[in-house]
Amino acid sequence: MPEHAGRPSGDSQIRQQLLHHARLLFSKKGYAKVSTRQIAEAAGVNAAMIRYYFQDKAGLFEAVVTETIQPLAQLVHQQNQQKSQSSPALFIQTYYQLMGQAPELPKLIFRSLHDPDSAEHRIVSKIFGQMFQQMISQLQRYMREPGRLKPECDPLNAIVSCVSLAIFPFLMPDVVKQQLGIAMTPHFLTQLGQHQQQLLHSGLVPDQEKQNV
């Protein structure tokens, strides 16, 4: 964002406070049920600061989603530019680390992508569209490389499995999480990411390839 005359003191801190509390409120209540006034009050600043930094609620929501997934988007873009092939487990672990900051945010993103009439659909589609396209392209290259998968494994099914493993934990119904006694804490997600890596390795990688790792 360009520099402004009369920039408020504590500039970076105020902006980060707004992003933090907006992420929490959007994740908990959904985009439509959160007002800029509520976000400003939670952040302890004047609502005019949202207009100053983000123009409006849509701009703030876009910043929340963009900055949350930025490290993953950078990883995907870098691998795509280099035509290199990262393990799907790396994408899953990175996704867990990022979404662990706001475990309810993926639900909001998922609902937005499935509701074309919602105000946030356009924002989420714009942010995720290119990244998903690049990520799926990379997974396809990885899975279809000769000798990468067990002969009985279909590359398309393997890709669907990887995407499912990444997304489902955050979309799990609360009643299921309560029955299992789990919470989406950073510690749990780290352990789950390690488990998913072992699961993918055992289920997809040929025995000869395992010996060479």
Rank of each mutant, 00 (worst) to 15 (best):
178 Q>W: 12
127 I>C: 04
186 P>A: 11
117 D>F: 08
146 P>R: 07
34 V>S: 06
104 E>S: 05
105 L>P: 03
185 T>V: 07
71 P>R: 13
74 Q>K: 08
125 S>R: 00
37 R>N: 02
42 A>C: 11
141 R>Q: 15
153 C>A: 01
52 Y>K: 06
61 F>A: 10
187 H>L: 12
25 L>Q: 06
189 L>Q: 13
65 V>E: 10
164 S>F: 10
168 F>L: 03
126 K>M: 03
178 Q>S: 09
58 A>L: 06
153 C>V: 02
103 P>N: 11
74 Q>N: 08
1 M>T: 06
39 I>F: 05
7 R>S: 14
50 I>Y: 09
209 E>N: 08
74 Q>S: 04
192 L>D: 03
97 Q>R: 07
153 C>N: 03
181 G>Q: 11
128 F>T: 00
189 L>A: 05
148 R>V: 07
189 L>K: 08
91 F>P: 05
155 P>R: 00
131 M>E: 01
52 Y>I: 02
25 L>P: 04
136 I>K: 06
62 E>Q: 14
41 E>L: 09
145 E>K: 15
190 T>E: 14
126 K>G: 01
200 L>G: 02
135 M>A: 05
46 N>V: 12
31 Y>I: 02
127 I>V: 07
165 L>D: 11
35 S>Y: 00
157 N>D: 07
137 S>W: 09
69 I>W: 15
56 D>W: 13
157 N>H: 05
75 L>A: 06
146 P>D: 08
100 G>V: 01
51 R>S: 11
108 L>R: 13
178 Q>E: 10
48 A>K: 04
72 L>Q: 08
133 Q>T: 04
139 L>Y: 10
111 R>V: 06
187 H>K: 08
62 E>R: 11
26 F>M: 05
124 V>K: 01
125 S>K: 00
99 M>I: 01
194 Q>M: 07
187 H>P: 04
23 R>P: 06
6 G>R: 11
182 I>S: 14
77 H>Y: 01
48 A>I: 00
65 V>Y: 04
62 E>F: 07
180 L>N: 07
99 M>H: 15
11 D>V: 15
108 L>H: 05
124 V>A: 02
6 G>D: 12
18 L>H: 03
38 Q>P: 05
189 L>S: 04
110 F>K: 00
61 F>E: 14
116 P>M: 04
20 H>G: 14
213 V>T: 14
109 I>H: 04
145 E>F: 14
163 V>H: 10
67 E>Q: 15
125 S>M: 01
100 G>N: 04
58 A>W: 05
22 A>Y: 06
183 A>H: 07
126 K>T: 01
147 G>P: 07
32 A>W: 03
68 T>Q: 12
136 I>M: 12
64 V>H: 09
138 Q>I: 11
154 D>V: 01
140 Q>S: 12
33 K>L: 08
